[in-house]
């Protein structure tokens, strides 16, 4: 049996922190397009505008992809924290019940 050490509260905190960072990444991804557009609009007809547009799209896609990964991890940690906590409560209740039975 593998070694197990879990602190549900720590996992829950980590899940919340990941959710916050996911939201930061969502904001960044949302801001990339208008920001690169400002650059491309400032340099009409240039090769720079074309390349900047492509770079902006590539960066936005990459940021979105990490954002999705963080969302998955945040959800997984949050749900693991809840499940571990439930297991602990269940085990504690079982022990309490066992303690009340006559020996």
């Amino acid at each position: 049996m593998p070694t197990l050490h879990v602190e549900p509260r720590v996992l829950a905190d980590a899940g919340r922190s990941l959710a916050t960072q996911r939201s930061v990444l969502a904001d960044v991804a949302g801001a990339l397009d208008p920001t690169f557009s400002r650059v491309t609009a400032a340099l009409p007809g240039s090769r720079t505008a074309e390349v900047a547009g492509e770079v902006g799209v590539a960066l936005r896609t990459a940021v979105r992809s990490v954002e999705v990964e963080l969302a998955v991890l945040a959800a997984a940690l949050g749900s693991a924290a809840r499940e571990y906590a439930a297991v602990e409560q269940c085990a504690a209740a079982g022990l309490e019940r066992a303690g009340r039975r006559p020996v």
Binding site: E7, V10, L11, Q21, V24, A31, R38
Partner: peptide
């Protein structure tokens, strides 16, 4: 604005690194 967004990502990286470090005692298959 691009530099400011890069700073947002810097900070996000810092938070993620701290979050990962906070899980140092977590053991098990998960």
């Amino acid at each position: 604005e691009l530099f400011a967004l890069a700073e947002d990502l810097d900070r996000a990286y810092g938070q993620l690194a701290r979050t990962e470090a906070g899980l140092a005692d977590w053991r098990g298959p998960a």
